[in-house]
Simulated assay, not measured.
Amino acid sequence: MPTSSSLLTIAGTDPCGGAGIQVDLQVFRDFGFHGLSAITAVLSQNTRGVQRVDPMPADAVAQQLKSVFEDLRPAGIKIGLLPSKEVVEAVATALKELRETRPCPVVFDPVLASSSKHQLVGPGCVEAMRAHLIPQVDLLTPNLNEAEILLGQKIHTLADFQAAASELLGLGCGAALLKAGHLPAQPSEASGIRDLFADPQGVASLRELPAIPDDVRGTGCQLSSAILACVASPPAAITRAGRIDAIERARAYLNHLLHTRRRNIGGGRPVIVRERPART
């Protein structure tokens, strides 16, 4: 089988191109990868918010993945929105079968609710993620609100935030990136964003990046896709330093776009717009 320069995203759609499958493919292209996709849900949304979520049948998601894996060899997999318990289980089963013969890095951005507070996942989803999917994931990338849901607890302070980074490992993932964008400003951290990386060797505070005043759509999707691309190009050494370096390169890429490419294309939140190929 030929060597692949492709990455796979398993996620939902976004008609205005600011998040989900559409933006994942743009990120893959920025890093020189061919984008593969399996659609888990069709969303009716715009820059103002989400109006409707239509989950794909679990067997249709399973068939998409079967078709890809029978013919192609993705260098890595990013997972986004999984709208139902059945879809979570279908993806987990496909991953288990794939990784028994062709292991590749898996990054999971657990999209659980939109920033406009629209519920995106159905009953039993979070429990299925904990039981079947997260233990197969190399890197879990929740924001503060998603971490609260996954851990079943509130995160109010910087101490809570640091403790939560470690506790995410208890869900079975290989490592976790806990994003600080929704953490209330702390006196010592008021000038920028400091995400936390956690693995079995401990918790590391990542480089401080300058914050922006706007709440931009699709940042979680783009960061997780960029991390996967940085891990796969060239494949990062399976070391703590290699993983942290890949994450820092992805964070710098996204932060550059946030400061230079955010645009208002509709009446709601801004999105990142790529008028030309973006590089850092």
Rank of each mutant, 00 (worst) to 15 (best):
I10D: 10
I10C: 09
D14A: 04
V23P: 06
L25T: 05
V27G: 06
F28A: 02
F28C: 00
F28T: 08
F33D: 10
H34Y: 15
N46S: 10
G49S: 09
P55E: 09
P55G: 07
M56G: 06
A58R: 12
A58T: 12
L65Q: 08
K66V: 07
V68P: 08
L72D: 09
P74H: 09
I79N: 12
K85N: 07
K85A: 11
A90D: 08
K96R: 15
V107W: 03
D109G: 00
V111N: 00
S115N: 13
K117H: 12
K117S: 13
H118K: 13
L120A: 03
G122E: 14
R130I: 05
H132I: 00
D138C: 07
G152E: 00
K154Q: 15
H156G: 04
H156N: 12
H156F: 10
L158P: 03
Q162E: 15
L168F: 02
A176F: 01
G181K: 04
P187V: 09
S188P: 08
G192W: 11
I193E: 07
R194N: 03
P200C: 03
V203M: 07
A204N: 08
L206N: 01
L206W: 12
E208N: 02
E208R: 11
I212A: 02
D214P: 07
R217Q: 14
G218W: 10
T219E: 06
Q222D: 04
S224K: 14
A226Q: 05
I227G: 00
L228K: 11
C230W: 09
R243M: 14
I244Q: 03
I244H: 03
A246K: 07
I247G: 09
R249F: 10
A250F: 03
Y253R: 10
H259S: 01
H259L: 04
R276C: 02
R279Q: 08
T280G: 07
